[in-house]
Design a protein around this nucleic acid. Sequence first.
DNA 1: TTGAAAGCGCTAACAG
DNA 2: CTGTTAGCGCTTTCAA
Lengths: 328, 328
Amino acid sequence: MDVARRAGVSQKTVSRVLNDEPYVSAEVRQRVLAAAAELGYRLNTAARALASGRTGSIGVVTLGTALYGPVTMLMSIERAARDAGYALRVVNTVEGDPDGITAAVNSLVEQGVDGVVVSEPIDEGAFSFRPDVPVLVLGMPAAFFAPPAVTVPGHAAQAARSATEHLLELGHLTVHHVAGPARWYAAGDRLRGWRAALAAHGRPEPPVIEGDWSAASGRAAGRRLAADPGVTAVFAANDEMAVGVIRALVEAGRPVPAEVSVVGFDDIPLAAYLNPPLTTVRQSFDAVAREGLAHLLRAIEGPDAAPPPAGDPPVELVVRGSTAPPPA
Amino acid sequence: MDVARRAGVSQKTVSRVLNDEPYVSAEVRQRVLAAAAELGYRLNTAARALASGRTGSIGVVTLGTALYGPVTMLMSIERAARDAGYALRVVNTVEGDPDGITAAVNSLVEQGVDGVVVSEPIDEGAFSFRPDVPVLVLGMPAAFFAPPAVTVPGHAAQAARSATEHLLELGHLTVHHVAGPARWYAAGDRLRGWRAALAAHGRPEPPVIEGDWSAASGRAAGRRLAADPGVTAVFAANDEMAVGVIRALVEAGRPVPAEVSVVGFDDIPLAAYLNPPLTTVRQSFDAVAREGLAHLLRAIEGPDAAPPPAGDPPVELVVRGSTAPPPA
DNA sequence: TTGAAAGCGCTAACAG
DNA sequence: CTGTTAGCGCTTTCAA
């Protein structure tokens, strides 16, 4: 309004300039920009959202923990969203809250977002809501939701399989698995990959020990594993648990990797600096976030939006010092 | 509007009910609530923000990394904000961006927030902006900003001092320090604490090695330290660097803690499970976030808001296996 | 205790 | 290329 007067144009023209719309003469554009700068003018997001129906922000549902995987995914989503011109709203799901994800998505929709990303999906039975914006669920088997939901599968199963095969190729007769909580889809993926590798090689499948992603739970699992002299190789569903397993093994006098090999999952930044350096699987959170967001933006903006990047996100086994052939 | 018609009341009355305002009869309240529920009605945040001038959300400027400290602080802020009824907007500062914090704060203000929290302040010279909302700067010496900024100092210096003293009391003649980047206030705090401990005990102050918070930089520092046979004790400004230091020491054939003691800072969840378990300093991010947010809310809502919790946030030295007396 | 009227600051749709 | 006219869905102010 003030800017319009000062630049001697209509309010709508100011709007056009500030939104980079076409059909504004260069001269007028300059004049408006100058006036806006002088007045320290800022577009009011609330008014824009009210008038346009779009908020320019997307919401993320994430875990309220410092675990590497979820946190890195959040950071990657932030970057991808910002690059696409969207602001981010974040809601943590609280541990133990029964319908945490549903509630979190709802709160985001109420806050006003153009789309929602569910970063670490947990099986809560059915998602009992009909959000009126697109929802992207990361790391989920497709076709689990009706639109407007969109899913991006993730490649953890395949990666888990190659981690297990690495151990098998080293000469281990079988591989034990310390899984994540059963309700986490991410845990299921890894479990499936491990199982597939064992089956493909005709190896016996030892009972699964379930952890909660934490190093403490890894250590508890490791204690049970250490008591069984038949255990020579362990695949943990994330690096934190792998660290706990190694700790328990070492405490029990079973050196890693001399007696028992351990591989983790995620490649936390510390992995290369541990004693021993941790063999693990690295996945590109950035790639997954970027691909997922591209899908989400299509659902929001329509088919004119940039098409999602093609190609598999890189997943790679990083062999370091925590794996070796089994003792003779 | 629809809800109003359905409940047979005015729009304003609906507004009153939905905002828990007084002066609504219980009977009408019920009727409105029922109508809203049947219609699946949701308050529109944008409209409310436009009309009331308040957005009900606060913005956080944080680092785009998976480092434990910043991430945990972010999670704590999310919790504290949600408990206070505020939604969260998040912007990461990009590494290397010269005026990263200023730009991030501006973008938050443009997005529309009632207040801003700067979680990991870096010295960027002067903050060259006059945001029109209160800004809370965590971990900063007070009185660095004019209002509407408010700062919460943090107790890292004192904690760093006790970490250093722990080493001195173990019998080490002096303590070497691997610092964080000089521009980070958090790094400065720890440096000061270390220095104070040395001075108080009349010990020589060895040259500081500066890292970048990462394990890789810690390892580089550790290599230099390992080359000096006089080094028997190291205090690293965070746990990630401490892990790198230990790695380098071990690689150089200087076992920890037999030959060299190392203490970290932050108490990452993995600290207790490392080889050796890491002696470190634990600080309560939750307490700092909660106190800081209380200050911020006062600045936003006026002096009627809940007063900030009193008392020092707990900071404690956790002694584990990476420290021991110097070799004889 | 309730309601009516008047915007908040922007964009959509349509004219010029 | 530019302007006019209506709202978007709330809250505010004032009156009943």
